[in-house]
Amino acid sequence: MDPRGPASHPSGLEATGRWTRRRKRWVVLAGTLGGVALLSVLLGFGLSRDPTLIRSPLLGRPAPDFSLRALDGTDSIRLSDLRGQVVVINFWASWCAECRVEHPVLAATWDRYREQGVVVLGIAFQDRPSASRAYLSELGGGWPQLSDPGERTALAYGVYGVPETFVVAPDGRVMFKQVGAVNYGALTDEIERLVATT
């Protein structure tokens, strides 16, 4: 018979062995549950946020400066030259359906606020200049229209697609951004607010 047989085991040792085994099981269980709980919290946090809704980091920050040539090739406009005025920057394209939808809103805004020193700037995005010009002669729009070679300005403004509209305060900070067709009420509210502070 084995000398380390059952008789040589003090009963206390057996109990201790069973106890540590049970404790170990609890530790493993608690660890697993803790890990699952942590991952669930993180997953819940991630799922509760809309990944398509990204707040522009530009809001409240100085608007990236640009100097762009007009679509008709006449002259160029530098944003920093417009300091002291409210500037609406609208990225658009002739191939963009929603741009047609919002075009009357921009026209109405331009007509209503140009006397108060508000500037509306259109910037063509991924568009052939000839197509852009044809679009403008079809829909009208007397505010300055600029071309953006290589989309350098659009990339600086973090444009995902057109239309996107920004409002720059007289101090040069971006105060408003709308992705998609701009809303007349929201746009004019922001302009009124900024005009009142100047």
Binding site: I54, R55, S56, P57, L58, R61, P64, L155, A156, Y157, G158, V159, Y160
Partner: peptide
Amino acid sequence: GEFVAGYGEWI
């Protein structure tokens, strides 16, 4: 950093 300035850390 320039792309982050325009698009946020999402980029």
